[in-house]
């Protein structure tokens, strides 16, 4: 799901950087100094988790858990995801420096959408967690596919969206079970945002 450099037009990449860094600066203003250590720790966790690969349809995918990040961190998930993606680009060449803004925007929006869904009242917590986990992964995939189509890569690319349905379903189940575990082990995490 990481867009590499050279794939999207440079103007889009610059716009992605401007919007993402603007969002980071805006959301970062409200971050208290004592929160930064927690955010950094969860960024490191997200980075470690992203190295766990699952076999899927003959290839392998790695976890993103943007939905869980949105649930745990709310809007603060955006700078955390930006940082995780920066390290993935630098160390593992997942994405690139130029496309970092677009990648952060896609995945950060997924986390923000998950955060909003998590707060939707009236549904059991496990269901909300599952839906948030699904949307946290699938929305970035849809955004990416939309960007590729707009950039002229053809309608065939929409087939990738179908593959990501399976990935998002896995993430939804994982997030639902993770939320259930966190509720039992440390409920304060779910209520801190």
């Amino acid at each position: 799901m990481h867009i590499a450099d050279g794939i999207l037009p440079p103007a889009w990449c610059l716009a992605g950087h401007a919007i993402s860094l603007g969002a980071v600066a805006l959301l970062g203003r409200r971050v208290e100094p004592w929160e930064v250590a927690r955010m950094g720790m969860l960024s490191a966790t997200s980075f470690v988790v992203s190295m766990i690969h699952f076999p899927l349809l003959g290839t392998s995918v790695h976890l993103g858990l943007f939905g869980l990040m949105g649930i745990l961190l709310g809007g603060r998930a955006f700078p955390v995801i930006f940082t995780t993606l920066l390290f993935q680009a630098l160390l593992f060449q997942h994405g690139g420096l130029l496309s970092l803004g677009m990648n952060a925007l896609n995945m950060g929006l997924g986390a923000l959408a998950a955060s909003l869904l998590w707060r939707t009242p009236g549904l059991p917590e496990t269901v909300r967690g599952g839906v948030a986990g699904f949307v946290g992964t699938y929305l970035p995939a849809l955004l990416m596919v939309g960007e590729f189509q707009a950039a002229g890569y053809g309608k065939g690319f929409a087939a990738i969206a179908a593959v990501y349905l399976a990935v998002a379903a896995v993430e939804g189940v994982l997030t639902a079970t993770a939320v259930t575990f966190v509720r039992q082990a440390k409920p304060a995490l779910l209520e801190s945002r």
């Binding site: 929160e35 950094g40 969860l42 869980l68 745990l72």
Partner: peptide, 29 residues
Amino acid sequence: GPRLAALFVRSWDRGERVAAAMTARGFTG
């Protein structure tokens, strides 16, 4: 899911401890 969540919980706890230590040392962000 629970295994990953357990890692997040441990990280969160570690983050709290680090934050407390940094605040005590005058960390300003």
